[in-house]
Design a protein around this nucleic acid. Structure first.
Lengths: 156, 156
DNA sequence: CACAATAAGTTTCATTTCGCAACTCATTAG
DNA sequence: CTAATGAGTTGCGAAATGAAACTTATTGTG
């Protein structure tokens, strides 16, 4: 299966990954959450080749995750901003950061410190149950397919 | 920058993505959380080519995210299971699922239903502040680098 | 005026990686 | 004796990536 057919899987992860599941795309989104907005900044900060940055930004705009907005004329120049759909990826990025901080500490602690404005404290993301608010544990949850089990992985 | 040098960035997301930030890798991890354990199942369910599956499984084992364990002899056969480090990716997968379910609904609701054993209810993942427990909002948090700002993206 | 700089890409081309099918190897089942 | 199973490996054409150079419009500088 080629990657551009991956969104034919029923699974939401597959469909999510068809939009953001690329190495450089996720790095570009990290930068977007760090207030990066311009092409050259994305290119330098992500470390991806310029043609790859151009391609990924275009795809993110098509997917309505970033918005390309003109910020000056003569000459026209554009910047990229997260849409609501893009901002909604915050939990994914923050849980990724929490995992990276936990398992890839270089000895000096997390390279970025995150402060929660509401409570004013340093924090990391914790994934919780939307029903009861407890922290999620993979051993404590069960997943059952909407339809018959064999449908889940089927490509439609 | 080549992808295999990406872990030289200071950022934890970059280092996390150097291990799991590949399209097929994330799909393979999704399957691992759905109790997939064997090579052929990973190949079929992910849809990736067999050589790619072999390569990714090997890398995940090297990264100590999956463990390759013999489950029979004559002939030796092995299965792949999530380690503690791998299980700790659950929040990432679950927030990805929540995002996919929200923004890629095909009209029939989420293809998988997740039930929280502790409270017994259907749920999705919510990312919360480890300090106060409130739901995270990208507009309500600030990130500041451990060192000077320009260090964050620097490749060491 | 001539020249350099800036921003946002595009082009070119050599190197890698992917996708697919076919093949291997050890062992058990019929 | 032959087929099936499980877990890969091999070979090869097609596609994607990485690096550097190039483009275009416009402004700033000597």
């Amino acid at each position: 299966m080629r990657w551009n057919e991956i969104d034919r899987q029923t699974c939401s992860v597959a469909r999510a990954l068809s939009e953001i599941g690329d190495r450089w795309t996720l790095l570009i989104l990290r930068d977007a959450f760090m207030r990066t907005r311009r092409f050259d900044e994305f290119a330098e900060r992500s470390g991806a080749a310029r043609n790859v940055v151009a391609d990924r930004l275009e795809k993110l705009v098509e997917a309505d995750i970033l918005e390309r907005r003109r910020y000056q004329t003569k000459p026209d120049r554009h910047e990229y901003r997260l849409t609501d759909k893009g901002l909604d990826l915050y939990p994914v990025i923050m849980t990724l950061i929490a995992w990276g901080d936990r398992w890839h500490d270089d000895g000096g602690g997390p390279p970025m410190r995150h402060k929660h404005g509401a409570c004013g404290k340093r924090m990391h993301a914790v994934a919780t149950c939307s029903a009861c608010g407890d922290e999620l544990d993979p051993r404590e949850t069960t997943a059952t397919p909407r339809d018959a089990n064999h449908d889940y992985w089927k490509v439609t």
